[in-house]
């Protein structure tokens, strides 16, 4: 699943005028968080150093809403739409938390990593 697919679906979900580079930065940010969590609990591919539209993302397609709603949250925040941000945020937090729990259940911590 590429970054471009995620951004296209995010634009449909929340039409916006945010610059593409800024959205790619947001996507890089969430991708780094995901990679960090993955590396603590089991082996995984490292996140790409640079985020472009062609970058393959770490999470499979069934978890795409994590990426999409992170972009939506940040868009609402940039729009100063606090009510919408809070709603999107609640949904994103739920998705992200449940993925983190699932990942922890399915992957042993790396021996060299300290589990927090």
């Amino acid at each position: 699943m590429t970054a471009k697919e995620i951004l296209t679906e995010a634009d449909i979900t929340r039409p916006n005028l945010v610059q593409l580079n800024r959205k790619l930065d947001w996507l890089y940010s969430i991708e780094k968080q995901i990679a960090d969590h993955m590396s603590r609990y089991g082996e995984s591919d490292a996140a790409a150093d640079e985020m472009t539209e062609q970058t393959e993302l770490l999470l499979p397609r069934e978890h795409k809403d994590i990426y999409i709603y992170y972009i939506v949250c940040m868009t609402d925040l940039a729009n100063q739409d606090i009510a919408m941000y809070n709603n999107s945020c609640a949904y994103f937090n739920g998705l992200f938390e449940s993925w983190q729990k699932k990942w922890r259940r399915e992957h042993l911590p790396s021996p060299q990593k300290e589990v927090k």
């Binding site: 949250c73 925040l77 606090i82 941000y85 945020c89 994103f92 937090n93 938390e97």
Partner: peptide
């Protein structure tokens, strides 16, 4: 995780 926010705009 993202923090919730409060708006005071009237």
């Amino acid at each position: 995780m993202l923090p919730f926010m409060r708006s005071k705009n009237k």
